[in-house]
Nucleic acid binder design. Sequence first.
DNA 1: TATAACCTTCGAGTAACACGAAGTCAAGAG
DNA 2: CTCTTGACTTCGTGTTACTCGAAGGTTATA
Lengths: 138, 138
Amino acid sequence: MYTVKEVSKLLGLTEHTIRYYTDKGLVPSVQRDKNNNRLFDEESLNWLIGVKHLKQCGMSVEDIKSYVDLCLEGRSTIQERYGIIMKQKATALAQLEEAKQRAKYMEEKANHYLDIINEVLPDDTNPGKWQKNMPIAH
Amino acid sequence: MYTVKEVSKLLGLTEHTIRYYTDKGLVPSVQRDKNNNRLFDEESLNWLIGVKHLKQCGMSVEDIKSYVDLCLEGRSTIQERYGIIMKQKATALAQLEEAKQRAKYMEEKANHYLDIINEVLPDDTNPGKWQKNMPIAH
DNA sequence: TATAACCTTCGAGTAACACGAAGTCAAGAG
DNA sequence: CTCTTGACTTCGTGTTACTCGAAGGTTATA
C-alpha cells in the first residue's frame, strides 16, 4: 500500500495532481485509512498509470472520467471503450513521430550553436540580423 | 508572405495561438501589411517553428520570450543560449523515450481489449471487479 | 510535551490558450 | 454603388488543469 507521497515519487506526478485526479474520480479503487489518508494498492497504482498515459495522449480529465465510468459499467461498454483506446493509440503514435522530429530539430540546433561558438559560421540565429541569401538557421 | 490563416495550416497551430505568440513577442521578425494584418515571411515562419518546438519541450511562453530576447542581443549571449538549447534537447530526448513507452502501452491496451472482445479473457479491466489473484490488466 | 513530518480539505491564483463580440478593409455580385 | 462575404483586427471574458498555500488533524520521535 502506497501513500500519496510514495505514488508521487513512483509515477513522477505531484501530490497535488494525484489528489486532484482521485477527487475527480479517475481512480475509483483508491482507499482511505482510518485517518482518511489516501492509500493506493497495486490496482490503484496501475489505474493511475493508465490515467497518466491517457492524459498524456491529450485526453481531458472530463473525458478520462467518462472512460473510467464506462469501465465501471462492465462488459456492455467494451466496444465503446475499445474505440476510445484505438483513437488514443493513434494519437500516441502520432505523438511519437512528433517527438522524433522535435529531438532531431533540437539536436541540429545544438550542433548549429556549436558551429557558431567554434566560429565556423556567423551568428545568423539572430532574427533581427537575418539577410536575404543568408542560410536559415532555425 | 503568409497570412495568419496560412501559417495556421502550415504549422498546425490555431490562429488564436499564433496571434497570442506574436503579441507576446515570440516572433520578433513578423511584419504588418498596410491594413495592420500580420504577415509572415520565411524567416518569421522558421522562428515560429522554433518557438513551437521549444514550447513542446515544455518551456513556458515567458521563458521562450527570454530566449528570444537573448537572441536579439547578439553574439554576447551565445553561450547562455547554447545552455538553454542543450537543456531543451535533453528534455526532447526524455520526451521521446516517454512517447515510445506510451505508444507501447496503448498498443498493449488495444490488444488486450481485442482479446477480451474475442472472449479469450474475462473483463478484468473493470477496477471495481478486480480481485486478489486475478491478473492485472492495466 | 513539543516538535516534526506526514496527511487532510478548501479556496484562491495562474498559464496558456479558447472563444466571441465588435469593428475594419478589399473584392466580387447584382 | 451598395451589399454581402470573408479574412483580418483588438479586446475582454471563460476554461482547463493544475499550483500554491493556509489551516488543521494524527502519529512518531526527542
